[in-house]
Nucleic acid binder design. Sequence first.
RNA 1: GGGCGCGUAGCUCAGGUGGAUAGAGCAUCAGCCUUCUAAGCUGAGGGUCGCUGGUUCGAGUCCAGCCGCGCCUACCA
Length: 642
Amino acid sequence: MFHSIEKQVSRAFHTHIQIRYGIDLAVGIEQPRQSEFGEMAVPAAFQLAKQLRQAPRKIAAELVEEIGLIAGVAAMEVAGNGYINIRLDRGAYGTALRRSDSASVPVPGEKIIVEHTNINPNKAAHIGHLRNAALGDTFVRMLRACGYRVEVQNYIDNTGVQVADVVAGFHYLENKTLADVRALLEDPAIRFDYYCWDLYARTSSYYNDHPEALAWRRETLHAMESGEGDVAELAHVISDAIVKAHLATMLRLDVEYDVLPRESEILHLQFWSAAFELLKQRKAIYFETEGKHAGCWVMPGLSEEGKVIVRSDGTVVYTGKDIAYQLWKFGLLGKDFFYRPWYTYADGRVLWVTTDQPADSGQQFGHGTRVYNVIDTRQSYLQDVVEAGLRALGYEAQADQSIHFNYEMVALSPRCCADLGIPLSEEDRKRPYVEVSGRKGLGVKADDLMDSLIAKALEEVASRHAEAPAGEQRRVATQIAIGALRYFLLKFTRNSVIAFDLQEALSFEGETGPYVQYAAVRAQKILDKLIERGETMPDFAAELSSEAMTRQLASEEVWQMLLAASKTGAAVERAVAAGEPAHVARYAFQLAQTFSNFYQQHPILIEENREKKVLLLWMTEFFRRQLERIASILGIQIPIYM
RNA sequence: GGGCGCGUAGCUCAGGUGGAUAGAGCAUCAGCCUUCUAAGCUGAGGGUCGCUGGUUCGAGUCCAGCCGCGCCUACCA
């Protein structure tokens, strides 16, 4: 709502300035610092001052005089030394809000692919992975809220070194057979992903002490690549089981996917050979005959020596496979996967996985017009290589639409390490944070963290609602815990390193998910109480005429609250443009703050002035809707009570 | 050495394309539960926006140079 008026005002100024002065000016709309200045401020006069060689104030006066009235605007005035402040027609604004369902405008023709999560399927997920998934999933929700068609891919690297190391751990270190591992999977007393977490750390440490054991890795990788024999089968059994565990972990956070493209199919369906042919044909890579890269296929440009894409032994590096995958996402590879169903979500939506067995699934994935890869910032160089690859192949447009949605790592605060009993060196204790390491088994497992959060929330819920059924308490506690976790992971901007602190993450006060949920719960409670008291919801259309709106919204304080609540759409659109889920989180918090304030200052049910009561009830309902909407974009549910 | 990022209140962080008096949470202190849930609300204190220079009507924001910190810079992924 607010956004569309902003656009109208901007357009009106732009058109007038073009006609009057012949200048094509991008007219920005600002939010005045102080609300007394109105709802919008236009600094256009400052920008024109230089070109016109006139005082900003004089130009501003001219503009105000000549533009005249804009729909929805009550007044424009010159302020300071050249600002144009705009006041909205409050009655008209309120009435428009009451009528509109603020439906988003669908953006047709564009299909956006978002790839996120991408956890190596060799051990349980940790908090770093949760940041990736929370960012990716929230961005998907933001895009969908703006009307975009989005496909969510979770890439499974089931043939990589990390899986090989766990396979080697079972095979060589523990002397376990395929049957042994299958039995382990059946054992209800064992959490397989946790077991692998420890085994991976043990195997890595064994490599450290016995470098000759690295031969295990080579042999395992070789066996996996051939796709034949027990070791290859073992790798599949392990990675499939871990993928299942990861999906279950992510489902706790309400994170869902459309398709799981797997590296094994990229291999078996010869995606790389197709990409390799393309790269050679178009001379995007060359065969090096001398120097330290002799015998390799190299992509020039990025670093001084170029980047090796194919090793001298003929095997392709990870980046090469990534180029093939990126080409496929844009529908440029000329090859496709086959698909089979992997899982059905509660709402009936099917999650597909790639397969190399020809099957007519009727599914079509990929063919995006824009691709977001949610990958941590340490892999920027690799992502640059992928983009450079597209460019070298002549796919400039697709390279421009390949977006590395990067984010900083999640590390552990020294205090958190102490809480978890992780020993630290003298040096580490002085650092602001300590990096997590899967190899060392250092980190916080995602499910453990969620369990602690739920337990803590449950204590709180039980003490407040002792009479409620246990199952219900647990559901509410879970919603609160997940809300807290998602908000915590989203409130930092992407390029900020999160120094994870257990005590801070477990907090339910202040700028947190539960604060947002609490506001929505209170709003709902007012509406429930109204019915309990035997009253009925007023017919807002009948009781809130435009005149009534104007009268009631004359109250500066009430008006400001309504205004703040009406900016949800604008906030989400801005956040999408900035690629920053943290902006949505911040807006949600501010919205909740505004409502808490409103709640405190206006006892609604006992309000005696009927017109005012109706307005307050309508606003409560509006706030509730907006809070629920913004929370759902953050992937946060609203409990029935708190 | 090169590339990317960061440096804002005691701590953790926000600060649309440069704009009006630099914000929030936590922590600290002082208030508010016989009134729709106190996971809440009100108020107070707390700042040389790393340093220096430049661009201009105007710089936390843009440019340059320093200082400090982090990540990347593999024929690992």
